Simulated scan of single mutants.
Amino acid sequence: MKTAIVIPARYASTRYPGKPLAELRQADGSVKSLIRMTHEAAVEVPGIDAVHVATDDARIAAHCEAFGASVLMTSETARNGTERCAEALDRIEAEVVVNLQGDAPLTPPWFVSALVEGLADGEADMATPVLRCDEATWAMFREDRAQGRVGGTTAVFDRGGRALYFSKEVIPYVDPGKAVDPVPVFHHVGCYAYRPAALAAYVRWPEGPLERLEGLEQLRFLENGAHVRCVEVSARGRVFWELNNPADVPRIEAVLKG
Rank of each mutant, 00 (worst) to 15 (best):
residue 154 T to F: 01
residue 154 T to G: 02
residue 154 T to V: 10
residue 154 T to H: 06
residue 156 V to I: 15
residue 156 V to G: 00
residue 159 R to S: 15
residue 159 R to T: 15
residue 159 R to F: 15
residue 161 G to L: 04
residue 162 R to A: 13
residue 162 R to I: 12
residue 163 A to L: 15
residue 163 A to N: 06
residue 163 A to M: 15
residue 164 L to K: 07
residue 164 L to A: 10
residue 165 Y to G: 00
residue 166 F to R: 01
residue 166 F to Y: 14
residue 166 F to K: 00
residue 167 S to D: 08
residue 168 K to V: 01
residue 168 K to E: 07
residue 168 K to T: 07
residue 169 E to Y: 13
residue 169 E to S: 11
residue 170 V to C: 11
residue 170 V to W: 06
residue 171 I to V: 15
residue 171 I to T: 10
residue 171 I to A: 12
residue 172 P to H: 06
residue 178 K to D: 06
residue 178 K to L: 14
residue 180 V to I: 10
residue 180 V to A: 09
residue 180 V to P: 04
residue 181 D to H: 02
residue 181 D to N: 13
residue 182 P to M: 13
residue 183 V to P: 01
residue 183 V to L: 03
residue 183 V to K: 02
residue 185 V to A: 04
residue 186 F to P: 01
residue 188 H to C: 03
residue 192 Y to G: 00
residue 193 A to W: 07
residue 193 A to I: 06
residue 194 Y to S: 08
residue 194 Y to D: 13
residue 195 R to K: 14
residue 195 R to W: 09
residue 196 P to S: 12
residue 197 A to W: 10
residue 197 A to Q: 15
residue 198 A to Q: 05
residue 199 L to R: 02
residue 200 A to W: 10
residue 203 V to E: 07
residue 203 V to R: 09
residue 205 W to E: 14
residue 206 P to Q: 14
residue 207 E to F: 02
residue 208 G to L: 09
residue 208 G to V: 10
residue 211 E to V: 09
residue 211 E to D: 09
residue 211 E to M: 10
residue 212 R to H: 09
residue 213 L to E: 15
residue 213 L to C: 03
residue 215 G to N: 04
residue 215 G to V: 09
residue 216 L to W: 08
residue 217 E to A: 14
residue 217 E to R: 00
residue 218 Q to R: 00
residue 218 Q to T: 03
residue 218 Q to F: 04
residue 218 Q to C: 07
residue 219 L to T: 05
residue 220 R to N: 08
residue 221 F to P: 00
residue 223 E to T: 12
residue 224 N to D: 12
residue 225 G to V: 13
residue 225 G to W: 05
residue 226 A to I: 03
residue 226 A to E: 13
residue 228 V to K: 01
residue 230 C to A: 07
residue 231 V to W: 10
residue 231 V to Y: 07
residue 231 V to T: 13
residue 231 V to N: 10
residue 232 E to P: 04
residue 233 V to M: 07
residue 234 S to H: 10
residue 234 S to N: 11
residue 234 S to D: 15
residue 237 G to W: 14
residue 239 V to G: 01
residue 240 F to G: 00
residue 241 W to P: 03
residue 242 E to L: 02
residue 244 N to D: 08
residue 245 N to V: 15
residue 245 N to L: 12
residue 249 V to E: 12
residue 249 V to R: 11
residue 250 P to W: 11
residue 251 R to M: 13
residue 253 E to Y: 10
residue 253 E to V: 09
residue 254 A to P: 03
